[in-house]
Design a protein around this nucleic acid. Structure first.
Length: 579
RNA sequence: CGGGGCGUGGCGCAGCCUGGUAGCGCGCCAGCUUUGGGAGCUGGAUGCCGGAGGUUCAAAUCCUCCCGCCCCGACCA
């Protein structure tokens, strides 16, 4: 492609609306433009990157035995009523009516559609397993779209759905996808990590997220420092090891006593007021769990992991109690809840609280706390369990070694669905014994457009984006300097044709622009390889080659250019860990 | 939905407090010069100042309502 005839509206300045680096650079490099909040047009360069990512995913999915289809983005509401999600999904599901007043929605995901498809066609175990995938535009009416392609409302996703006849098959399907994802992310040239994720009611280790590692990531993951251990999990999922210490619930403790603490609402204020450490405090959090009042206790310096608590309770909806509930259950305003005399159905405690006694906690009375609290003596604990969020100083839950916290961007998720959809939608087949069985499902998503953004978040400098060669909009850019020198232009045109003949994606910057403009645009757009032909080089019989990632420059001979370029190209790919 | 901010040529912004009919930088067009890291000079084009009402002799500026966008929070298969 010749840049003079292409469509790449670059910007010199950061657009005011962009906050994160990928958004700024995608806009500045002329790769995307916003149509409205969370909805973007892909301009030629952005589309090329998107397509390269999609191609790699497609190849790896096909290789893993998945089969590509394309489902509609408009879906009938009745299908969603079958699974109960029409009611359950909430406002993220964009709903509308057609002229006949029938309900429709824009698909945020395709479990219903694919299950409907399969249940109509697959009747025998002989037709299983099957894994259907698509690469398609999804729509989720996010509460607050932000960060450009990172969290848009409309985005491109690769989603796959597997159907198996038994557990062993479902596990094999899951593993096949896990491996396909690993291969795909390696080919994308991104530093990533597969981490354990919460699998909700399904349980087991059947959910992993694929995180692209980047300082600017929104998610934090816990990773074991020992690569041999390999533990990695997102914070929601990461287990905290049960403390080794003896149970101290019934250890000796002075008598419970109430202390006046006027106006002291938070753990911080309480510690300042009583001159104690947060770890001497029991923090009491009140929740409405499917309409039941429950409490969770964690140490004052810890954070409750709501996902763990929700999983423990096996409830559908867990909401922090509102002010009126707090008043009703504690006889006090917010800030004075404690385990003693609390009017809730059950109190659960983090297992760490079992290791000590003589706590400070709320008194369930306005402006009062209690001290010398013994959970064994003074409170009724339904269960001790792992309820808190892991911290960087915690030991690895698997090998007890040290762990690190790292930032990442979730770009993929593999998930075992089990019977959830096949049951509600009656996706059945006849097994070897002629007995009706429900299909076991799995679903596997990758955010294609988000990968483009995360590639930039992971790889950029103050000049612009730095794309891995496997997903760069063009692998190479060729710059001709000296617009008035016909010899340079002729030679550049010749090299451009030669590169194309070699099957290289090349963008030829043939514009009548000053060198500085071309250099800066090339850096901004982030092509991994830059070839610069100028008058001096031409006379000397060389062309300059710059590695965008390292900044390293080389001179390639014009005589025998093809071979020299091929060798350099190989180096560049290897520098990215690619081939 | 709650809190905050912003809407002024294509982009980034000033002007608004203290009303008098719009300005700067970049970009764009033309000419000359320039040509290895975002050139210089000269000349030019481009604005329903987000929209609708209102106040006023007069509104980008003051008042009311609406719309859009961004940030923080709640939310997130």
């Amino acid at each position: 492609m010749r840049l003079s005839r292409y469509y790449v509206p670059t910007l010199k300045e950061d657009p005011a609306e962009a906050e994160v680096v990928s958004h700024k650079l995608l806009m500045r490099a002329g790769m995307i433009r916003k149509l409205t909040s969370g909805i973007y047009t892909y301009l030629p360069l952005g589309l090329r990157a998107l397509n390269k990512v999609a191609d790699i995913l497609r190849q790896e999915m096909n290789r893993a035995g998945a089969v590509e289809i394309l489902m509609p983005s408009v879906q009938p509401g009745d299908l969603w009523r079958e699974t109960g999600r029409w009611e359950f999904y909430g406002k993220e599901l964009l709903r509308f009516k057609d002229r006949h007043d029938r309900d429709y929605c824009l698909g945020p995901t395709h479990e219903e559609v694919v299950t409907d498809l399969v249940r109509g066609e697959i009747k025998s175990y002989k037709q299983l397993p099957v894994n259907l995938y698509q690469i398609q535009t999804k729509f989720r009416d996010e509460i607050r779209p932000r960060f450009g392609l990172m969290r848009g409302r409309e985005f491109v996703m690769k989603d796959a759905y597997s159907f198996d006849k038994d557990e062993a098959g479902a596990e094999a399907s899951y593993r096949a996808m896990f491996e396909a994802y690993t291969k795909a992310f390696l080919r994308l040239g991104l530093k990533f990590r597969a981490v354990q994720a919460d699998s909700g009611a399904i349980g087991g280790d059947f959910s992993h997220e694929f995180m692209v590692l980047a300082e600017t990531g929104e998610d934090t993951i816990a990773v074991c420092r020992d690569p041999k251990c390999g533990f990695a999990a997102n914070l929601e999922k990461a287990k905290v090891r049960k403390p080794q210490a003896e149970c101290a619930c019934n250890a000796a403790c002075p008598a419970l006593e109430s202390v006046a603490t006027p106006g002291v609402h938070t753990v911080e204020e309480l510690c300042a007021f009583l001159k104690i450490e947060p770890k001497a405090v029991v923090k009491t959090l009140l929740f409405d769990a499917d309409g039941k009042a429950v409490a969770a206790l964690v140490r004052g310096d810890r954070q409750l992991n709501e996902v763990k608590f929700k999983n423990l309770l096996k409830c559908n909806d867990l909401k922090l109690a509102d002010e009126s509930q707090v008043r009703a259950w504690t006889n006090a305003p917010v800030g004075f809840a404690g385990p003693v005399g609390l009017k809730v159905e059950a109190v659960y405690a983090d297992h760490e609280l079992c290791c000590a006694t003589d706590w400070v906690a709320g008194a369930n009375a306005a402006d009062a706390h209690v001290r010398h609290l013994s959970l064994g003596r003074d409170a009724k604990i339904a269960a001790f369990a792992d309820l808190r969020v892991i911290e960087p100083t915690d030991p690895c839950p698997e090998c007890t070694g040290p762990i690190d916290f790292t930032k990442g961007i979730e770009v993929g998720h593999v998930f075992k669905l089990g019977l959830k959809y096949s049951k509600s939608m009656q996706a059945k087949f006849l097994d070897e014994n002629g007995k009706e069985q429900l299909m076991i499902m799995g679903c596997y998503g990758i955010g294609v457009s988000r990968i483009v953004a995360s590639a930039i978040e992971q790889n950029h400098d103050d000049k612009g984006a730095i794309f891995p060669p496997s997903i760069a909009p063009f692998e190479v850019t060729l710059l001709s300097l000296g617009a008035k020198e016909p010899e340079v232009l002729d030679k550049a045109a010749e090299l451009y044709a030669e590169l194309q003949k070699m099957g290289v994606d090349v963008l030829y910057d043939d514009r009548d622009e000053r060198p500085g403009v071309k250099f800066n645009d090339a850096d901004l757009m982030g092509f991994p390889m830059q070839l610069v032909l100028g008058g001096k080089g031409l006379k000397a019989g060389i062309i300059e080659a710059k590695n965008r990632k390292t900044g390293e420059r080389k001179e390639l001979p014009l005589a025998g250019f093809a071979a020299a370029f091929a060798a350099w190209r190989k180096d560049i790919w290897q520098g990215w860990g690619l081939e």
